[in-house]
Design a protein around this nucleic acid. Structure first.
Lengths: 262, 262
DNA sequence: CTCGCCCACTCGTCTAGATACCTAAAGGAG
DNA sequence: CTCCTTTAGGTATCTAGACGAGTGGGCGAG
């Protein structure tokens, strides 16, 4: 095994009260930030760092586990530890549900991704009637059963978002909304055709670490949070007609909102 | 050392291909989710788990480090590992900058926190002229120097938000905006008095893991992401007059937005 | 030349300690 | 009663080594 190129990484400071594995993590983090290691590039192996710093393997692994926790690097069994590439982000504008954007036959997600040159995909489509959670029920005005529409969105094969729409059964049952493909303009277009003219939406945004199930569904790397968005659609009579619960990979999104000043 | 109460945690499955430390983490996570351990309650010590599962201490520590990474628990040196309590959240409504909320003498943060029964506080106030980053400069229309107003917000002694406002010097220099305390209604009221009537705001929202510096400033626990909000204020002539860059502890906030449907 | 096997390198998991330091409570000195 | 010391029980860090398992290149058999 060849030694590390000198100058790539410095030495430890034995007088420091900072734990050795943190010092090693700091050095690697700084080297990555400074571009000494580029996106996707392989970092020195554990054995090389053991030699370079004169510590035991567990100490080096502790350092790596910090960086993995920060989402800066990822390990590949049998290959090495690599600098994680930053994925391209998707920008969501606050007028994305405006009526004027609802004319085309394709869904907003597909249109937008095509325009950005990505390959969009929608899968795990599930449409069924079910009993809503207490929270969803309350948002829809204490309904007992709802139609739930679940789907997952992918960009270039990477899952980026998992969404569930809940609609009161008296509105959705027996309509195109209960079909896997609700047709051009999506369920909002169908709702308006059914006489529920939309007035406004309320969105609630949280950010948190994903549950193990979300990690799996969105194939999230460690250290990547999720944005949890809950949108309620109201018709002109003030009735909530849909609640959409969306979990997004935070590294894939920027949300954008327009607020009037008055 | 007394053994663990039986039934609190199960046994390992030696036939499973799931790593032992993950199995232990799974069991603890489930016990917490089911409320077997409550918020703030102490989990069994490392030694107790070593005895209970018949594994080495490193294995137990690996399990704990998973849960810490998820932000589910936190360790206190010399005391034990505890279920992390969920802090109360602060809700930000999308009309929080509306003109009608700008009448009082106190800042929106103080008023709102007082109403919620919390003890609000603002510190690390810094007001200075500086050279903006490329991003900030671009958002303000390529200005070369700006007035920066930095402050940190605390609720009941806990830092929850760190914000910096950037204003073009030609607008802010020599005005109350350049004072530590800009007076009733805050800098938006002053801007309007100076003839820059506000028209609208644009907000960009990201979520990510904090940098080490942000962990320090916001005293963030491991596993807590931050919400990064960048707001640009525009006057009625379409000129950007302020950019506010805000980093919030994600576990302390819910953002709420109102979107018209047309 | 191609296929299959072996081997070197890599990370993943686990063991069994050692040392250091922190916290809280008990008990003694003043 | 107050303050300090001791001590027991915690976590934090580190070492040294073992075995497992994925990857990919080299090399020999066919």
């Amino acid at each position: 095994m060849s030694p590390l190129p000198s100058g790539l990484l410095g030495d430890l400071d034995p007088t420091s009260d900072r734990a050795v594995f943190r010092q090693i993590a700091d050095q690697l983090r700084e080297a990555i930030d400074r571009g000494r290691f580029r996106e996707g590039e392989k970092l020195p192996s554990e054995a090389e760092l053991v030699d370079h710093f004169g510590v035991s393997r567990m100490t080096v692994r502790n350092a790596f586990s910090i960086l993995q926790g920060e989402g800066l690097v990822h390990a590949e069994h049998g290959k090495g530890v690599f600098v994680r590439p930053r994925p391209p982000v998707r920008r969501l504008a606050s007028d994305r549900f405006a009526r004027r954007h609802r004319e085309q036959g394709k869904s907003a997600f597909i249109v937008e991704a095509d325009a950005a040159g990505s390959h969009p995909q929608v899968d795990s489509l599930e449409v069924k009637e079910e009993k809503p959670s207490q929270d969803i029920s309350a948002r829809l005005g204490s309904v007992r059963r709802v139609l739930a529409r679940r789907r997952r969105y992918l960009l270039d094969g990477r899952p980026v978002e998992f969404a569930t729409s809940y609609l009161p059964l008296d509105i959705a049952r027996g309509t195109p909304i209960a079909e896997p493909n609700p047709g051009p303009g999506g369920i909002y277009a169908r709702l308006e055709e059914l006489g529920h003219r939309l007035d406004h939406f309320e969105e609630e945004i949280r950010a948190r670490m994903p549950s193990p199930a979300e990690v799996k569904t969105l194939r999230l790397a460690p250290g990547v949070p999720v944005i949890h968005l809950i949108r309620t659609a109201y018709d002109t009579e003030g009735r909530p007609v849909e609640v959409c619960d969306t979990v997004m990979a935070a590294d894939a999104y920027v949300l954008s909102y327009h607020l009037p000043a008055n």
